[in-house]
């Protein structure tokens, strides 16, 4: 399954080239990628358009098109993503009941596993494997954050 991480990296680099935070994701069903995407936060001005959500929307469209029951389909999906899903994405993936999550580097700012025990709050457990090509994923992020996020206003100075 980790072989699909390369596909996720393709999406992460594509996001980076479009001026987005470089995170990429693919949804794998059996041995087939059925959804793929990178972050689209800046272009949409919507802070929730993370790579995982792009894939969730594609998958739902796929279900409608093929007239498949979404709940069952999600239970067979492996989520492969370059960075640990944030609390929001992790909560969504737990609620949808995906089969497993495989991620690259940890997300110590928003991580759905590192910061909050999402599984406990949502009330479902799914298999989560982290650390697949973590260094590469982290390097992409570090490279990005060296530059400034063009869409964000300057950070307010802390008042003392």
């Amino acid at each position: 399954m980790a072989a699909f991480m390369e596909e996720a990296f393709v999406e992460a680099r594509r996001a980076r080239d479009a001026g987005e935070v470089p995170v990429g994701c693919v949804f794998v069903l059996g041995d087939k990628v059925i959804a793929r995407g990178g972050n689209q936060v800046n272009v949409t001005r919507n802070a929730t358009r993370h790579a995982e959500f792009i894939c969730i929307d594609t998958t739902l469209a796929y279900c409608r098109e093929k007239r498949l029951p979404a709940r069952q389909l999600f239970s067979e999906i492996s989520v492969v993503v370059t960075v640990e899903p944030c609390i929001m994405c992790s909560a969504a993936l737990h609620t949808l009941g995906v089969k497993e999550i495989i991620y690259g580097c940890e997300n110590d700012r928003f991580g759905g596993k590192t910061l909050v025990d999402v599984a406990a709050v949502v009330g479902t457990r799914i298999d989560i494997i982290g650390g697949v090509r973590a260094e590469e994923a982290m390097d992409l992020l570090k490279e990005f954050y060296k530059g400034e996020n063009p869409a964000a206003p300057p950070v307010a100075k802390k008042k003392k």
Binding site: R45, R49, D57, A92
Partner: peptide, 23 residues
């Protein structure tokens, strides 16, 4: 029927629409 389209998720996207964005 998409269980993740709660009204908060739609709301932030409608706010994005007011800023010439929206997904």
């Amino acid at each position: 029927s998409s269980s993740h389209r709660h009204c908060s998720m739609l709301l932030v996207d409608y706010v994005a629409r007011s800023q010439q964005g929206g997904a």
